[in-house]
Amino acid sequence: MRILHTSDWHIGRTFHGHSTLDALRGVLEALTEQVRTHDVDLVIVAGDVFDSATPSAGCYPLLTDTLAAFRDAGATVVVTSGNHDSAARLGFQAGLLRDGIHVLTDTQQVGTPITLSDEHGPVHVYGIPYLEPALVRHQWPGVRTQAAALGHAMDLVRADLAARGGRSVAIAHCFAAGVAPTPSLERDIQQGGLDVVPLQTFDGVDYMALGHIHGRQQLAPHIRYAGAPLHYSFGEGDKPRGSWLVDIDAQGFGEATWLELPVPRRLVTLTASLEDLLADERFAADEAAWVCAQYTDTLPQRDPLRRLQARFPHCASVVHLPEQQEHDDARTYVQRVRAAQTDRELIEAFLVHVRAGEGATERESDLLRDLLDEQALAEAHA
C-alpha cells in the first residue's frame, strides 16, 4: 500500500500581512499531482488543516476542492485535527463527506480505525486528533498532560490492533521527543517539560505519521514529520517543502521517499548595510524573492522599508541589526551619567547608550554646542 503523508497546511495563514491562499492552492495542486503520478492509495493529513479555529469563508473551498481532487485521483483520504483547528468546525460535516474521505476529530472514536486492504490483507489507519488534556481528562480520568493523553490514545490503538491483527498506521499531532523545531511557526510548542511525547509512546504500529513541526523530520525509519507544504516564516526559508511517500509491504513499513513540492516564491534573509542592500549587485538575484532585510548601519535609517521595497517589491520585514562595536569605555550607563561634569557630557553619555556606543557626529556636536551656548546665554540674562 502506498501512502502520501502531509500535514500543517495552515489554510488562511498570512505571511507578514499577505494572503497565502493563492500560493497554497498552487502547492496543493502539485500535491494532488503527486497522488496521481505515484498511484497513491491513501493520503494522510496530520492536523493543522486550518490556521485558525475560525477560518474565513475563503478557506473552506480550498480544503473541499483539494480533498475532492485527492479522491478523484484514486486515493482514500484521512484527515485529523491539529491544535490550530477547531475540531468541531473541521469535523462537523464528517458524516456528510463523500465515500473515501474521512475527517477524524472525535476523541471518542480514538482506537477505531479506517480499514483499507491490498493484496497482503488489511491496513488499519488510526487517526488521533489533537488531544488537549483539559478537554479529555473527563473522558480519560487521570490524564493531565499531552504525553499522558497520547499514551492513553496509543494504548487504545494497540488494544484494538491486537484484536484485529494486520498492519497499521497511526496519525497524531504533537511535539515528539527528539525533534528540532523550526523557528516561529510552532508558536504553541513547549520544548521542555510535560508536553514532550516520548518516542516509545508510538510503539506497536508500522508507520507513525506526525504533524505539528513545520520542517520534515525522521525520528525513526517509521516515525516521521512531513512538515508544512508552504514556507510560513523566514526561519523556514532554507527548509525543503514536500511530502513523504511511504510504502507498506507485506511485513509492515517498507520505505519512505521524500517528494519535493514547488516553492512559489523563495524566502531570503539579506544582511548588509542599507546602502549595499539598495545598490549592491550581489543581491540582484534576490529581487523577486520574499526578503527579510537586516541592515547593519550603526544608527537607524530613515524609512528603510519603503526604500528597500523600491528594489525588492516583496520585502516583508526590515530589522535594524547594527554590527557589534568594541569600546574602550567599559563603564555602565549609570556610571557615565554620574561621571558627567557638564550638560554636554550628559548628552554624550545618553547618545552612546542608545546608539550602541556611537556618540554624536561632528554636525550633531556643533548643534549641541550652539544650543547649549544659547541656553547658557539665556540663563545669564534671566
Rank of each mutant, 00 (worst) to 15 (best):
D366A: 15
L372G: 01
G95D: 01
G227R: 14
F15L: 10
E362H: 02
A226I: 10
R98D: 02
D65K: 09
L63E: 03
L261R: 14
Q251A: 14
C174S: 15
G242S: 01
A170S: 15
F312A: 06
D303G: 06
A250L: 03
D238S: 09
P141D: 07
P264V: 07
D99C: 00
R13Y: 11
C59A: 15
T201F: 12
H314I: 01
H10W: 11
Y126L: 10
L219T: 15
P264R: 08
P129I: 00
Q218E: 14
R144P: 01
L150W: 00
I347C: 13
R13T: 11
A316E: 14
L62C: 08
H314L: 07
D106G: 02
Q139G: 05
L28F: 10
S86V: 01
V337F: 09
L62H: 01
V79L: 02
T296G: 09
S19G: 09
D370M: 12
R344F: 09
S86N: 02
L372N: 01
P198V: 07
A316V: 07
D366L: 04
V205S: 13
L4S: 10
Q251C: 10
T361A: 05
A250W: 00
D72P: 03
Q341D: 09
R336V: 07
A53Q: 04
T20F: 11
G91D: 02
P55K: 07
I347N: 03
V354G: 01
T332N: 02
D22K: 01
G211M: 13
T145A: 08
I44Q: 05
R338Y: 03
F312L: 04
R98H: 08
G74S: 06
D195M: 06
G151L: 00
H138C: 00
E255A: 11
D155W: 05
R137W: 11
Q139W: 02
D249Q: 08
A340E: 00
H320N: 09
T201A: 13
M208C: 10
D297A: 11
L156Q: 07
L4P: 04
D297N: 15
E255D: 14
D72W: 07
F202Y: 13
G82K: 10
F202A: 13
P322I: 05
A360T: 08
I248Y: 08
A330T: 12
L259G: 12
L135I: 02
W9A: 08
V78P: 10
R89E: 02
D303H: 07
A380W: 14
L21A: 05
H212W: 14
T269A: 11
V103I: 04
Q190C: 12
A382F: 04
A293V: 11
A360G: 03
V334S: 11
G165K: 11
V43S: 03
L377I: 08
F92A: 00
A228Y: 03
P262H: 00
T76H: 10
R336H: 01
L305I: 01
G95S: 00
F350K: 07
C174W: 12
L371G: 13
G252P: 05
E119R: 12
D329S: 04
T64Y: 13
L63W: 00
G192H: 14
G165D: 05
G254M: 11
V136W: 04
Y130F: 12
E287N: 07
C174F: 12
S81P: 00
A87Q: 14
L346T: 02
G12S: 06
R336S: 09
C59Q: 06
S117M: 08
R265L: 03
L321A: 15
